[in-house]
Amino acid sequence: MSRSARVGAIAGALLLALAGTAAADAVKLGRPALPEEIKAWDIDVRPDGLGLPEGKGSVAQGEELFQNQCAMCHGEFGEGVGRWPVLAGGQGTLKSERPEKTIGSFWPDTSTIFDYVHRAMPFGAAQTLQPDEVYAIVAYLLYLNDVVPDDYVLSKENFPKVALPNQANFYDDDRETTEKAFWNANPCMKDCKPKVEITSHARVLDVTPDAGKQGDKPAGAVE
């Protein structure tokens, strides 16, 4: 090896060693993920439909599946049992004192229903539904929310065309402009308001878990 080639080899080795401190690649950690492995975990579905599996399902098929596997928590018509989530109704309530946030009244993206039912439902038996079953349940939920007619068949092909009513009413975080007033170098320290009145008591609502039972009854102890 010539002198210059040797210097080059040393410099090269040095560069490799330096790179080795920065990237896992150089220390040979991890291994290539196999296509089958990626396919097994990569079940997410995006609003543009990317990730949807092949398949289809009708409102009628969805109704049967829903009554058997979902209605015990969500109610026959998605109205919700007890405190379990309400899935249908609530249109026009978002500005009211008690907004009801359902698929039809609130959710922006149809893809979210598919993705979530597929990955996490039924509660306690996640990822047991086949793609055709998920299409059918989503079709039934869209029907319950007056988004599709009762003879609708949802499929990978027509999925991106189904839009939810509240989609346009979401916008990105704008606190740094709309709440600019909260940045204030000199907040008031003295005589900030003429008088102070109590406007609301937690006691009136009485929704605190029973503190007595927990052995920390918040009684005052000043003599």
């Binding site: 500005k95 959710w107 979401f170 916008y171």
Partner: peptide, 23 residues
């Protein structure tokens, strides 16, 4: 990806009926 927890949940519904996302 528009997941459940960034659309139907963890978005901030304001008085005008619109919602902030990615807060």
């Amino acid at each position: 990806w528009g997941q459940r927890e960034e659309t139907s949940k963890y978005t901030d519904l304001l008085a005008d009926g619109r919602s902030r996302r990615f807060t």
